[in-house]
Design a protein around this nucleic acid. Structure first.
Lengths: 192, 192
DNA sequence: TATATAATTAACACCAGGTACTAATACGAG
DNA sequence: CTCGTATTAGTACCTGGTGTTAATTATATA
């Protein structure tokens, strides 16, 4: 796209737009694109308080680094600290601020569920394990910083179905209880 | 932490480790940390094929630019496409590969739950809404790429408790059904 | 112990993508 | 014509490197 010369104001608008869509472009490339000198672009950035390319990349990278961290397995599903395959297991999860409602710092229910459900999956010794049914009871709110300890136990099993109970505690107090009916599937079974 | 001098091999290991935890560190800082010259650090990076700081940042930033997505609300909890506060709502979620078991591409149950639970929270017109109980039934596995549509409806309410039913479908077929008992709390209530 | 080999450090030229500052030039409005 | 804004030019300097050549230091091995 060849953009002809234009007024300062218009260029400023287009500049902001261009950087939105292509944040890694250099002043040199911008100068060529807008048919102005590199100095003009620099002045433009100054006026618009847009940092240099390297700074822009740094910001994006820092942001990414902060959020990649909050994505690691352990920090989403909890860390399996003890596992007796086919019998029971324990998972520990630290309640992060990203998991909470901003309003009140209470952890969203699905994180507690995710920990419990993943634990239920992990305990069962089979190729493919899916959740069939679940009955959950949230007893007390969990807040940011809480160390959430979930204990899971297989209560019974019948053919391909397992009943797993998970009790989740914070500071020794039960905050959640879940009963899961887990279903194991063979590979290449119909329906999948 | 002051690290004394050490062999090349050990330094290489520590170097990789350090960069893992602090990817934005410069050669100069690394040289100071390991008490070697900056040239030694550069040679180390060459042998280990570790790119320079700017390149590392660029890679992270590029990655972030391509996948800012993996964090956005809509893609985790689903997008609210219709909402009648106090009555019902609809949420759409596209099943991403990050949500699935690698083994078979089936979406982990807690994502389906998260969508349903968030929808239940959204429908209720109150300052603070928490999940009290839930009864879930997973009827069919959901796979990567599926467009998951959850419909929620308030079935009844009594004082501060609401019963919400969520039915989740893919291609018109019901894949999940959940009954939630949601509890609303006043601000500054005991227990929070 | 001498010497070969590996590891480290130094020195220098160069690059990208800037900042910061000064100065010159273009251009339109009054 | 002149004033003011906009633009362009030029220079010095900065960071965080690369690439190359060469010198120095350690270490091992015959």
């Amino acid at each position: 796209m060849v953009t002809g010369r234009m007024g300062k104001l218009k260029r400023h608008e287009k500049l902001k737009n261009a950087l939105q869509h292509e944040p890694f472009i250099t002043d040199e490339e911008l100068a060529a694109h807008f048919h102005v000198s590199i100095q003009t672009i620099r002045l433009d950035r100054m006026e618009l308080k847009i940092p240099e390319q390297r700074e822009r990349m740094k910001q994006m990278a820092t942001q990414a680094y902060g959020s990649v961290k909050s994505l690691s397995q352990e920090e989403i599903f909890g860390e399996l600290v003890d596992l007796e395959l086919g019998k029971s297991g324990i998972s520990i999860l630290i309640a992060q601020k990203e998991m909470a409602f901003e309003r009140n710092g209470i952890i969203r229910g699905h994180h507690i569920f995710a920990q419990a459900n993943s634990l239920a999956v992990a305990i069962i010794d089979a190729e493919v394990v899916l959740t069939g049914e679940a009955r959950l009871r949230y007893l007390k709110p969990v807040v940011i910083g809480d160390k959430i300890i979930a204990r899971g136990k297989i209560m019974s099993s019948k053919k391909d179905k397992y009943r797993v109970e998970v009790i989740t505690k914070v500071n020794g107090e039960t905050v959640f209880r879940g009963e899961f009916v887990m279903v194991t599937k063979m590979r290449d079974e119909e329906g999948i």
